[in-house]
Amino acid sequence: MQNLIKNRAVVSDDNWRLVRDAEEAFSAQEDVILPLAVYLESNPSARSGRTAVWLAPDHDPAVLGDKLSVLALIAIDFPGFADGRGYSIARLLRERLGFQGELRAVGDVLRDQLSYMAQVGFDAFAVRADRDAAQALQGLNDFSEQYQGTVLQPVPLLKRRVAPVV
């Protein structure tokens, strides 16, 4: 996967291959990120390569159930810049379902979104191929503070404010 930011750094040694089409062939040795339907029908223990899943904006992450504890990576697809449903899925995975593995944003991922994506739990970003990942990385530093509670900072700013000295 090209143009990848992971743990606040641009990486080039990622072996995961995103399988977009259910009919797309992949070998048992490859590390693959499968569409949800393909993943649910697969037998990851029969493969020598690692297996992960990607969720579309209309998927319910709760269908992964007990598989969440064995998944090293979940990718969430952003088919368009204006489609924000992936933010909700990420937050559900982190806060309600307790997912601890890598959470990767894929699809139409741009610099302007990275800070917000990090706040809901993403720690990896597959930036669009026509953009520079090194420049997009700076998007993680666009805002120094968040007013509302987030996955990264659950206590809202109002409750973190220090009382004025009288």
Rank of each mutant, 00 (worst) to 15 (best):
R50V: 09
L68G: 06
P57Q: 06
S48E: 14
W54L: 03
I33R: 03
V63N: 07
P44T: 12
T51P: 01
L34G: 06
A52L: 07
A46P: 10
V70M: 02
L34I: 13
G65Q: 06
A72V: 01
L73H: 11
E41G: 15
D66E: 14
P35E: 04
A62T: 15
L68K: 01
G65P: 09
K67S: 15
A52N: 03
S45L: 09
V53N: 02
L73A: 12
K67R: 15
A37W: 11
V63E: 11
P61W: 13
L34P: 15
N43W: 01
K67V: 06
P57F: 08
L71W: 05
G65A: 12
L34S: 07
K67Q: 14
A62G: 10
L73M: 09
V70Y: 08
S69W: 01
L71G: 02
W54G: 07
R47V: 03
Y39H: 13
G65R: 03
L64Q: 03
I74N: 08
A46F: 04
L55C: 12
A52R: 14
P61Q: 14
A75T: 02
S45V: 08
D58M: 12
D58V: 03
T51M: 11
P35D: 02
D58A: 15
S69I: 11
L71E: 11
L68M: 14
L71C: 07
L64Y: 13
V63P: 06
D66I: 06
H59K: 10
K67G: 12
K67I: 01
N43L: 05
E41S: 09
L71A: 05
A75P: 05
V32N: 07
P61M: 09
D66F: 03
Y39N: 13
L68Q: 04
L36E: 08
V70E: 06
L36A: 15
R47S: 00
P44C: 08
P35R: 11
A72G: 10
N43I: 14
L71N: 01
P35A: 13
K67L: 14
L55P: 01
A62K: 15
L64V: 14
L68A: 07
S48M: 15
L68W: 07
A75Q: 04
R50A: 08
A46E: 12
R47T: 05
P57E: 12
L73I: 06
L55I: 10
T51W: 02
A62F: 03
S69D: 03
A52W: 00
L40V: 07
R50N: 12
A37R: 10
L73D: 00
